[in-house]
């Protein structure tokens, strides 16, 4: 059973095609990260999944229901984190808790206050007067306390410093560990996702590639070497991505060391000190998608 299922999704905005025929699925119990450069339609996809945008055509199922027409009872099981950690600014911490608690039968007041009290703010503190990090804790508290089956997080890291980001990850980690919970997340800080997700979705030019994190981190590789002066490399079937700083070249490829060596030789390049380097997810992201 898939928590999210997208089939042949097409969407156009102002006559311009955003995707044509996008299909993927997120199985239950997985933690899936959506990666893509700015302007590739990440937010649009999240908006479609959240039900705030109706796709031009195709199906988009969330826990088995059409995403743009989720029944109230199903919405109970889906937790949404809106971009920018949106919350009702006119409420206090306590009012926020009271407001949301009435809607969810499984509401856990302790989870909410456990997260929020870490900041040492009084329950009468207004959301409006909080920093973005503090607000994110309140929003996270709301989502966690409702105990959803599916979490959709739109750029949770936006505006958060390292400490709050870590805190967020800790909480998500515990949440997922409880089992049978699905998380669909986007973040502009790719690095963080490495600690969280098990599945990656790359969105690029209207196409989507899905891969388990482990596979990606093992099959995609980063090599570095020093090139001779004046040598210029270009991307091709073997070289998926490259970075060049002076003579120092970083290559990304799905191939093995030997394949790369012979490929470079074929290009007439003699790499000095060619070696495989440890690759972070962010490296991999850049290597796969490019910098811009």
């Amino acid at each position: 059973m898939n928590a999210i299922e997208v089939q042949n999704l097409c969407h156009r905005y102002k006559g311009k095609s955003v995707y044509e025929d996008l299909s993927f699925s997120v199985p239950r119990g997985s933690v899936c990260g959506l990666l893509g450069k700015n302007g590739q339609g990440k937010t649009t996809l999240v908006n479609i999944l959240m039900g705030f945008l109706k796709p031009v055509s195709g199906r988009c199922l969330v826990l088995g229901e059409n995403s743009h027409n989720l029944s109230p009872s199903l919405r109970k099981r889906v937790g949404l984190l809106h971009e920018g950690h949106q919350a009702y600014e006119f409420m206090t911490i306590a009012q926020t808790e009271t407001f949301f608690s009435r809607w969810y039968p499984d509401w856990n007041r302790d989870i909410f206050y456990d997260l929020v009290n870490r900041m040492g703010l009084s329950p009468g503190h207004k959301i409006r007067q909080m920093s973005c990090g503090q607000r994110s804790q309140v929003v996270l508290g709301v989502i966690m306390a409702q105990n959803p089956d599916l979490l959709i997080l739109d750029d949770y890291s936006m505006g958060l410093d390292a400490g709050y980001r870590r805190l967020f990850l800790d909480v998500l980690h515990d949440f997922v560990a409880a089992g049978d919970k699905t998380v669909f997340v986007t973040s502009h800080i790719v690095q963080d996702l490495e600690q969280l997700v098990d599945t990656l979705l790359f969105l690029d030019q209207g196409r989507i590639t899905q891969t388990p994190l482990k596979d990606f981190m093992t099959s995609f590789k980063k090599f570095t070497f020093t090139a001779e002066k004046g040598q210029v490399l270009q991307k091709d079937t073997v070289i998926t991505g490259l970075e060049q700083r002076g003579n120092r070249i970083t290559l990304y490829t799905y191939g093995e060391m030997d394949d790369l060596k012979s490929h470079l030789a074929g290009l007439g390049i003699r790499p000095k000190d060619l070696q495989q380097s440890p690759m972070s997810l962010e490296d991999g992201f850049i290597g796969l998608m490019g910098k811009y």
């Binding site: 959240m50 705030f52 919405r75 109970k76 809106h82 949106q86 919350a87 009702y88 006119f90 809607w103």
Partner: peptide, 18 residues
């Protein structure tokens, strides 16, 4: 105004009610 600014009403619209 508080609901429309930043489209915050999406928060309420996601609550389990028609």
């Amino acid at each position: 105004m508080p609901e429309v600014s930043g489209r915050r009403m999406r928060i309420s619209l996601h609550l389990p009610m028609d």
